[in-house]
Design a protein around this nucleic acid. Structure first.
Lengths: 159, 159
DNA sequence: CAAAATTATATTGCGTCCAATTAGATTTTG
DNA sequence: CAAAATCTAATTGGACGCAATATAATTTTG
């Protein structure tokens, strides 16, 4: 029970598995913050936050989505999106109009100002690309690995 | 100016580079949320949030850190940590004592209850490991790529 | 058709996050 | 030594992010 080959939970031999640096989740958490910090000065110029920018990215792909539709694209719920979209509306980037044919739904539409911002977004994309110092191939590989991981985590029984 | 070879910003030929799915940053953002969702039911058992769990991970590695020390480990500032640590104190996992020799500093120390939780943490680690469905090698490779990316982003001039 | 179930959005409350400010302690420097 | 600069936490305010709840509209079903 207590011979030399025992590996007890609080007495690991080869490095501590609970070390922050060894945790994949912490690496992801840290990079997410790092991206946020990198985006901030770029987005501040337009008075946007990163999640607001994500909403605009989604709308540039497909305009006139419902709140639910945007939520499915980004993995966010109405508790996050409702106030965020009101701020985007106040800032003049989108309009929020309740659907006539189904009044439960609110259609989010880009304003001309919101559409115009798409051009600037390429500048931001370029800056971020430079900041990552990744080749297209490296970025693609990492993205692919992250997509797999995302799928695995979301396929968990508990959810 | 408008010949066939022109690539204007709003008229990309091979796929829209702004597509959400193609963005590395969005992949990271999504996985961070996915990890959070996966951790939540595991941490709820102990009444912990994920950032609180990160603080405990840091303290299990090195107890009796200052607020600043913990902040450097996790990349968080006092605006986040001060209230978080008070909640951990209220929950009985840590104590907060001002340093006698330098009263600017507050030393965070694990309580016996906080120390005891480390054993349970291995169970959480195991569950998360299963949820990722990654081999040790895959996880290590991804972690390494993320560490590089993190370093690159943080080495940016603008910061 | 009317009651029940479902759907879409909004609201509330709590816990991060960060920027900016404040307050107190310590160190530096003239 | 005393003023200035620096350092450490805490606080405040604005914006996510999510769970839980509320509300109104629509669909299902008996």
């Amino acid at each position: 029970m207590t011979n030399d080959n025992d590996m007890r939970k609080d007495d690991l031999k080869d490095g501590d598995a609970l070390a922050l640096g060894q945790q994949l989740c912490f690496a992801v958490y840290s990079v997410a913050h790092a991206f946020n910090r990198t985006y901030k000065p770029l987005l501040d110029k337009f008075g946007l936050t990163y999640p607001q920018y994500l909403v605009l990215l989604a709308l540039w792909q497909k305009d006139k989505m419902t709140v639910k539709g945007i939520g499915e694209e980004l993995g966010l719920d109405s508790g996050t999106l409702s106030p965020l979209l009101k701020r985007l509306e106040t800032a003049g980037f989108v309009s929020r109009v309740r659907d006539k044919s189904d009044e439960r739904q609110v259609i989010i539409t880009l304003t001309p100002k919101g559409v115009a911002l798409k051009t600037d977004a390429f500048g931001i994309l370029m800056e971020i690309g430079k900041a990552t110092r990744c080749s297209m191939e490296e970025a693609a590989a990492l993205r692919s690995a992250l997509h797999d991981l995302n799928r695995n985590l979301d396929e968990n029984p508990q959810i």
